[in-house]
Computed example of a mutant assay.
Amino acid sequence: MADHNGYTHRPEPRFDWFIPIDGDGDRAGTLRAQRPPTFDYLTSVAKTAEDCGFYSMLIPTRFANGLFSEDAPLAETWTTATALAAVTSRIRFLVAVRPGFVALGLFAQMAAALHQISGGRLDINIVPGGIQNDFERVGEVSDHATRYERAEEFIQACRALWQDPQPVSYAGDFYRLQGAYCSPAPGDDAPRFYLGGASPRAIGLSSRQADVHLGWIEPLADTKQRIDDLREQFEVANRPLSLGLRTHLVIRDDEDEAWSAARSLIADAAPEVKAQRQTAIVGTPMVGQQAQAREAEDHRLARHLWNGLSEVRVNCGSALVGTPDQVADELLGYWHLGIDEFILSGFPHVEECHRTAEQLLPRLRDRIAAARS
């Protein structure tokens, strides 16, 4: 990858889509989804993304529904990823994983097996912090710092099982391996680790362990500051920095129509769902979640950046809103900052996957090609 002032040696941008394990529809924050997250429906999303040429799909992790009522149907992450890998052939899977909920040696074997079965199409998005109160639902009680320390050992030990000569030994405060084996062992083709977060602890962990640092979209100036902080930490660690960006999209042929569609997404949100989301945000130690939920008039953080989804959605609650040309121009600005992978989504995910592939990505690719020349 080139230095951040030049583009010649940067990789071709990658565009990913999203698997809506909470459910889907053109309304968010209702008690139940218009389209429940059945395997048939999620298969249609995955096959649409594959047919549209997307590189990978992010599958989030939850212990309760994070877009509709908490007791609404929810597709379990790992089972869903495994099943979708069996009905696709090319697209990759970026599977969100919380360290500490599956025994390390078993997880390493599960991931290695899925990686082999899928033809090497697995990457792992490590989620150390999680949603406030979500861990506690299932009996996990640990502080923020402990979760990051545990996540670092989790990555180190997985890499050892996947890439070091076997048998493997590893001695940490949270994980210990004594003559352990992992079969199949992926070797040099092991899944990559994506890490996110905006806190100093998260950035430090990324600088030591991330193959890709993944951030939620913020105003361009804020993103630039976070990337500057990341560059400094990665330089100290003497490691290459690869950047990804996660955002929702609301694209229409007319800008006013796009803003109307954005507002309509949360127009029917249930007060109970809004209250549940507030519980997950208020007092959270997660810097990224605080940034997503910042207050702004009409939820407009910038001319085309809207965080209305933060009223009803855990984690990434911001979207780029506008015409295909306007959104392409906005994303080009983030590419200029050094971001080479874009994880995109829109509601509903099947229709908006087609719209994004047909109307947005050709424009954005043309703009990136022009910037390179």
Rank of each mutant, 00 (worst) to 15 (best):
I124G: 06
F54C: 04
A64L: 05
G66E: 01
A46I: 02
T43R: 13
L106A: 10
E76W: 08
M57Q: 15
V45A: 13
T43F: 03
P60M: 00
Q116I: 03
M110Y: 03
L104F: 08
R62M: 07
A108V: 07
L67N: 08
L42P: 13
F39I: 09
L67K: 10
V97Q: 09
P73L: 03
L104K: 07
L74W: 04
L84N: 10
A96P: 09
S69Q: 06
S44Q: 15
Q116L: 11
V127I: 05
T61V: 14
A46T: 02
Y55M: 05
A112D: 00
A72N: 02
A83H: 11
I91M: 03
I59H: 04
A46H: 01
N65E: 08
A72T: 00
T48H: 01
N125V: 08
V127H: 02
R98A: 13
R121F: 03
T77I: 06
E70K: 13
F54P: 09
R90A: 12
L67H: 07
G66D: 04
T79P: 04
H115I: 02
I126D: 09
F63V: 14
Q116W: 09
T79G: 08
L114S: 13
F68D: 04
R35Q: 14
I91K: 05
T48K: 04
D51F: 03
E50T: 00
C52D: 10
T80W: 10
